[in-house]
Design a binder for these strands. Sequence first.
DNA 1: TCTGGGGTCCTAGGACCC
DNA 2: TCTGGGGTCCTAGGACCC
Length: 421
Amino acid sequence: MFATLDSMSDSPAILHADLDAFYASVEQLLNPSLRGKPIAVGGGVVLAASYEAKAFGVRGGMPGRQARRLCPHLQFVGGHFSEYQRLGDQVIEIVRDFTPLIERISIDEAFADVSGSIHLFGTPAAIATRIRQRARDEVGLAVSVGVARTKHLAKIASQVAKPDGMIVVDPSTELDFLHPLPVDLVWGIGPVTRKRLAEKGIATIGQLAAMPGQSLEQLLGRAIGTKLGELAWNRDHRDVETSHRAGSVGAQSAMGRQEASDEVIETTLRHLADRVATRLRAKNKAGRTITTRVRFADLRAVTRSITLPAAVSATSILAAIAGDLVRTALADHPDEAVISLLAISVAHLEDEPALQLELPIELGDDERRPGTEAGAARWVLDKSVDEVRQRFGRRAVNYASVALSGGRSVPDAFRELAEKD
DNA sequence: TCTGGGGTCCTAGGACCC
DNA sequence: TCTGGGGTCCTAGGACCC
């Protein structure tokens, strides 16, 4: 309805491709008996819901119990996680047949700049149509596509086009398209901001655009206010970025409700430090800022962080520092005896030199002092463990205390999927 | 019978340097 | 002795995205 293709030719053409209800659609693809039925991937929490389930109000991130209440016939299925990666990659490769300028933002979503592809493949609308058709024919999945002059508009268009649709926003009708839409389609407006705007009587992007920039900044802060103002006025100048370097690497573990005992903390941190440090070493990275997060029984969370003079990537050193930080956080909250989550994140990443010399820090024993022989030995041990795991699988070697006993609600396979770059 | 796991970016105060 | 301002880094918290 917004497609008048002629005026598109001189403008940049950005395409946003987004697979519909991705995990759930893959499950229905793999198992035809699930097609047309309300299903959810996950268990304790809904990772993805089919459109049939969404019709009942089931949403991603929702507790499984609530989802079942909304949709009594909801069928929970375990995830075929390696298939998600494979099929997601396959669709991206189809897009890549039309342009190398691709910015993949998640397993099931990517921007593509097709401005330079028009003389080869036809109008952006024609390209989008072929991508959708090929994804359907060759992979068996529905992908919704938005096409516009900017990333922001292309992304909004693909959301509006769902399910299994496509919208091309002609440059001459951009504001007509944008302004009647609800504010939460704007990238960066979540539940909190939506509510704050609603209290001011602002529900549509047009109303947002009509708001004086000053009061917008007053309401939401300088950067957010400015950014949202620009997006509402359709002034988005971001390019498609084909490479992204990671700014941080982290891992977390939700643990239900557990007493904050030394044993629980040490075991969990050891496990998390192992995951994070292994991934850092695989990227040949090390990081200077270590952040831990402790969530209490009532889901309030606190963080403690430290920035070191040199970057670390050895498992035992990371675990030791994280332990100190978590103990600091707990000491600051002496009334909290029960915790529900621990997390470790490493930022300020640097390329790791071939031979690692980690910093000497003020810690008790030699093993925790990376500048020492013992510290170097730990790092060498870590590297050899990495190599054995590479050859024989993740389970081949475990640090003695790493094996966690309690059942976790999300399969390890999903974690490994989330770790993929 | 309360919510998983991976991230990014922004804000604000304080320390510190020039 | 008193008075100023700018820039950068660090830490803690929070909103948001997929």
